[in-house]
């Protein structure tokens, strides 16, 4: 297990390094015109050159990448081209909001999805059919459309929630809950749907295994077999899908945050993209990549704990 962990950790770091290099290369490839674009067509050539030097754009690409990397390792991701604020602190101020949104959604989804998936697999019949229809539809329809439906129904027609806006939990806990309910619901529905489908099919798969029959032959009741043995064995594939769903949620949060005017990483990436604020875009990409890689690492560890073959190798 320790060897396995170290190998995983190193792979993760290598991946992060490669992603950062690729992202940097692609984002700065069009580097020559950046200063001109920032200052506008009316600026003099001297002013443009001066600005380019200021931003370090006169250096060769690899030198710039290495100095960015050096900064990144010490937690310095540079400064925004617009407003000049520190990218790291900008990201940190947004990270909490997005993580709360995504982690809350993941946890709620996991609980509901496991319950639904097990229920569908064990009961069969019309319960199974209903859950399958829900899963299929929920997973197929893009979450911004679900959000749109929720807004139309609960914010506009019923007026239970404000359609947009975000309240800091520090300011008012109730207000915060009210402001994140619709976004979380919009993210959760799709995630539940996809995960429940996977839980259902892995449960069915496990229930068909020979050892389940043998356990039944030993006189274990259905409850023990389902919750102790089958669920434990079905958890592995379920976790993998949850990991994929988490990546999906991070992407989904971009649109949802923008729709509900929530000041998270997603809305930051939209605004920096429209402005062409490359240092911020780079920061968002690298931070999200780091989050995804960390989550995958955690899932690998959990898989190892669940699966003795991995743990003991």
């Amino acid at each position: 297990m320790p060897a396995f962990l170290i190998r995983r950790l190193l792979t993760g770091l290598a991946m992060l390094l490669i992603i950062s290099a690729l992202a940097y290369l692609l984002l700065y490839l069009t580097g020559s015109d950046i200063a001109r674009n920032l200052l506008g067509d009316n600026a003099s050539q001297e002013a443009v050159d001066l600005r380019a030097a200021e931003l370090g754009l006169d250096q060769p690409l690899h030198t710039r990448y290495l100095s960015w990397l050096g900064g990144a390792i010490t937690g310095n991701l540079g400064r925004s081209w617009f407003g000049g604020s520190d990218v790291t602190s900008l990201l940190m101020s947004r990270l909490g909001v997005t993580l709360t949104l995504v982690v809350t959604s993941t946890v709620i989804s996991a609980i509901i999805a496991i319950a639904l998936g097990v229920w569908a697999a064990v009961r069969g019949g019309w319960i199974d059919k209903t859950i399958q229809v829900f899963s299929l539809t929920g997973a197929a329809i893009p979450n911004y459309l679900i959000a749109l439906g929720l807004v139309a129904l609960f914010a506009i027609n019923l007026a239970w929630f404000a359609p947009t806006g975000y309240t800091q939990p520090g300011a008012s806990l109730g207000g915060w809950i009210a402001s994140v309910t619709l976004p979380v619901a919009a993210l959760t529905i799709g995630c539940i749907a996809g995960t429940a489908q996977q839980v259902r099919s892995s449960m069915l798969d496990v229930m068909r295994q020979d050892y389940i029959r043998t356990l039944r032959s030993r006189g274990l009741g259905p409850g023990r077999i389902i919750y102790r043995h089958a669920l434990r064995n079905a958890a592995g594939p379920g976790l993998s899908v949850l990991g994929l769903q988490f990546v999906g949620l991070l992407g989904g949060a971009v649109v949802i945050e923008q729709m509900f005017a929530i000041p998270g990483l997603g809305s930051l990436s939209v605004s920096s993209t429209t402005q062409g604020d490359i240092p911020v875009v780079m920061g968002v990409v690298i931070l999200i990549a780091a989050i995804v890689i960390t989550v995958n690492l955690l899932i690998d560890i959990a898989q190892g704990i669940l699966n003795p073959k991995v743990r003991l190798s």
Binding site: A23, L250, G251, V254, V284, V285, I288, V292
Partner: peptide, 10 residues
């Protein structure tokens, strides 16, 4: 390892 939306925005 990257959400498609983030890459597309970048």
């Amino acid at each position: 390892a990257l959400p498609g939306m983030v890459v597309l925005l970048a």
